[in-house]
């Protein structure tokens, strides 16, 4: 345990980076995922098709490839610069990649949530004179979200663990720090490994419990 204690500050800093990646990407993918869901149920066929293709591509591409694409393709090749500081730039590129990937899963979860909302709910909304977007925003999506809180929790947990792949675009999150420490303290591989694993469990376990509780609390009685 010496190494972990000795390097405690850097371990915490690395996990803090993991949390920031996960938080920013969670927010981003929630927004993008909701937008994609709206497109998939939109009256315009072009919007529906665009979203369907996006989800199919993003969901079926390995995350490593997605992140390499944002890092090397969008960042290095296309020269998109989000910050003059290279670490900050890499952070944002990683967030974009994680968001682009995770949003596809959020969209699929939300769409299955929409399927749980009886058709009559939207019909009642439309018959009051609410438009398509109003119906979606006020009636359909709120009920869809409540139906898929637990799956969204699973997606958040997966996202948190997926942040470790941000190492391919050079973000020093927890798994990068773990590797560095294993190289430095070769005699304590097991301890270091278990320490970092425990860190992820500590991060993700409460999420599962929180979302489980939320899903029971927010369930819509019919």
């Amino acid at each position: 345990m010496d190494a972990l204690l000795l390097e405690w500050d850097t371990v915490v800093a690395a996990f803090w980076m993991t949390v920031r990646l996960a938080a920013v990407s969670a927010l981003g993918s929630l927004v993008l995922g909701t937008l994609l869901t709206a497109m998939r149920v939109a009256p315009l066929a072009t919007l529906r098709r665009t979203a369907t293709v996006y989800v199919a591509v993003a969901r079926n591409t390995p995350l490593t490839l997605v992140l390499l694409f944002t890092g090397l393709g969008v960042g290095a090749n296309l020269g998109v610069e989000l910050s003059s500081d290279i670490a900050t730039n890499n952070f944002w590129l990683a967030c974009i990649g994680l968001t682009a990937y995770t949003a596809a899963f959020v969209c699929e979860a939300l769409r299955s949530g929409i399927n749980t909302v009886p058709v009559g709910q939207a019909e009642a909304a439309r018959s009051l004179g609410l438009g398509f977007l109003q119906t979606l925003r006020l009636i359909t999506l709120p009920q869809a979200f409540r139906a898929v809180v637990a799956p969204l929790g699973s997606i958040l947990i997966a996202l948190t663990k997926n942040t470790t792949i941000a190492l391919v675009v050079g973000v020093s999150e927890a798994s990068v720090r773990m590797r560095e420490m294993i190289e430095t303290y070769g005699d304590q591989v097991m301890q270091i490994f278990l320490g970092f694993a425990a860190g992820f469990v500590l991060l993700c376990l409460p999420m599962g419990l929180l979302f489980g509780w939320l899903s029971r609390r927010l369930a819509v009685a019919r």
Partner: peptide
């Protein structure tokens, strides 16, 4: 939408907004 607002509809299966209170159901529109 504007025309539908002028034509009220009552359904066989009520279709009250399940996630809103009774008051909210009547306020929303």
């Amino acid at each position: 939408a504007r025309l539908r607002a002028e034509v009220g509809m009552v359904f066989q299966s009520f279709n009250l907004f399940a996630h809103k209170t009774v008051l909210e159901n009547v306020v929303l529109g």
